[in-house]
Design a protein around this nucleic acid. Structure first.
Lengths: 350, 350
DNA sequence: GTGAGTTGCTAAATCGATTAACCGCCTGTG
DNA sequence: CACAGGCGGTTAATCGATTTAGCAACTCAC
């Protein structure tokens, strides 16, 4: 029941282990075709597959990647990042060690050491939300940052293009005819990067469309359904001429709360209120009634990108700034033209 | 920048590498205390940590576990299984290789081989739903099955105790005074194990309470919000004396659909209709209004159990049958006494 | 004083691969 | 015939640890 070793193949084929290794690794060495065939056949017959540990020790390449994350495995949608990284690894014959640190620094330090001891060929440092992170001192250079920006730069990194995502979302609303568009932002404790960028995108589109931003339309709430509902209530309490006809929400859960607030007032979506979310969280966005138009976070693609850089298949264009991955808009049914009554007012240009 | 090796420590301490190894591994060998201290100090000073690959080659134990799953990483709640397995592994100094096969048999076979080549000390085979799986031929004996039952048995396995979960759910409804309780089941294509077991639990409690099961109260629907809504509509269309006062739903998403159906008829939860879900899917159960009473799937605990068995810390009591992990009921606000009008009728005992 | 036993440590084999260096043998050439 | 060079392999070192067997020195008993 013991594993078959290269020496077993050598014996079976009547050659030395060196020859077996040369043949099986397709080394351009002087080995006759007859011997090649004999070795290959012998290897197949005895069912030989090389011991990766022994090979790793000798070649100093383990064909192994370490993926450290703060909590990726337990957050619903972020698993797509893992899938992307995983797929690339598999396509190239790599295996990935996954370590979830639960954002504990001691665990993180231990994990980095353990992965280094296992001689991983590269590491990926992943977060579940787009934010800025301090770079752990022991992290080897070349480590790829996934869905986060290393403070100080100097490492390859990939993050969603949240600004462009904000632009897409708000452009869709402007294109539908809306001019009073609220941004339903997340409140403080949350990492500010994503929300700031989306807000910038929001402001950019307003500027392009010649719409004066109204501070009253930038509200904040808890990143939950309840938070979204409360923030929406505040918007809908505004006097008629200042009330928004469309909402751009920081995420889909808050958008779900906006649905609740609207329905409780008897407002129909999208007839009375248009809503765009963010994240494209399947369980939320697709199951709302009507299904939510939202901006998708390119988790899978970011995961692929990070692994491709880790494996050296792809070289980041610029170490100074993270690679921005586009966030495609997912058109569903929560955006329509503004209600007729609101369509004509509040057209004050700057 | 090269890694420091054991020989560097040996040189620094003025001893042989054998001594260093003996000291650092706390081998009960005759080494003087003075030498011990000198070695430890030297190791600390040069920052030595053993190369796990070299050690693995020599000791034939890689301190590494392979976790194969069909799609665990990308499904929302199942990541808790990973977290449980991960935590146990970390606590014991193990690292885990994660491979998501996406239920592709070729990928699966390749993954098993790659993991075996990496000399993993054990494997865990995980599913995202409780079901019966065919055992891949190349899976090493001793592989632990997580959230699935190996066809034919012979392997350690852990699954949720869905029968007992069904019992808890329906007992909660009976205790609240309900006697007309529907089971909102999932329809065919789904793996039948979980739904059958929950149904058995349902029938058991009815029998205990002396309630004759009514076939009209066992309805099926798609495992989605829409499916739950449609199935609930069928139940609420029943004549008054046969209409259920409480619903036990196969999962939380279907329960969410039941909420929609109830609300559309102006029925309040739990005043007019009590509902119990299954899964305790955070994004759904906790965010419904009112929050959903449901039965939690013990993913984290199952993950821990599987890893403990894989590491040999725990020995399964019986290889014939899978270990059943209790599913605790999570009391929220969707269960109350039946409406007064319904409380008195339909008390026909068998 | 000699042999046995203990103490403290080291030499060398080993795990299973890869790979640089080299060794016969054959052929062709000057 | 001597020698260079190509061909088809093999020998042996190596990766970085662990571990067995054994060596040298010292103690102690008789």
């Amino acid at each position: 029941m013991a594993r078959v070793r290269i020496s077993d193949v050598a014996t079976a084929a009547g050659v030395s282990t060196a020859t077996v290794s040369l043949v099986l690794n397709d080394r351009t060495a002087r080995i006759s075709d007859a011997t090649r065939d004999r070795v290959r056949q012998a290897a197949a017959e005895v069912g030989y597959t090389p011991n990766s540990v022994a090979r790793g020790l000798r070649t100093q390449r383990s064909h192994t990647i370490g993926l450290i994350s703060d909590r990726i495995a337990t957050t619903p949608f972020a698993g797509r990042m893992l899938a992307g990284a995983q797929d690339v690894a598999r396509e190239h014959g790599y295996l990935v060690f996954l370590v979830d640190t639960d954002a504990d620094e001691t665990v993180e330090r231990e994990a980095i050491r353990a992965l280094a001891d296992q001689q991983v060929d590269a590491m990926i440092y992943a977060c579940m939300w787009h934010r800025v992170v301090d770079v752990p001192a022991s992290l080897p250079r070349g480590t790829v940052f996934l869905d986060c920006r290393p403070a100080g730069g100097g490492f390859p990194a990939v993050v969603p293009d949240d600004r462009a995502g904000g632009v897409s979302a708000v452009r869709a609303l402007v294109a539908a005819g809306h001019r009073r568009i609220a941004y339903l932002d997340v409140d403080e404790p949350h990492p500010p990067v994503a929300s700031d960028l989306r807000h910038q995108g929001y402001l950019q589109v307003l500027a392009e469309a010649g719409i004066e931003p109204d501070p009253a339309l930038h509200v904040r709430g808890d990143t939950s359904s309840a938070g979204g509902r409360q923030a929406t209530d505040r918007l809908l309490d505004l006097p008629d001429d200042r009330r928004p006809t469309a909402l751009f929400c920081f995420n889909d859960r808050m958008a779900a709360g906006a649905y609740v607030a609207a329905h409780r007032r008897g407002l129909a979506i999208p007839q009375d209120l248009s809503i765009v979310g963010y994240d494209d969280q399947q369980l939320v966005a697709a199951e709302l009634d009507p299904p939510l138009t939202t901006v998708a976070l390119p988790h899978y693609e970011m995961g692929r990108w990070a692994m491709e850089v880790a494996l050296g298949i792809r070289t980041p264009d610029d170490l100074g700034a993270p690679h921005l991955m586009p966030c495609p808009i997912v058109d569903r049914d929560s955006v329509g033209p503004p209600p007729a009554t609101a369509a004509s007012d509040s057209r004050r240009r700057t």
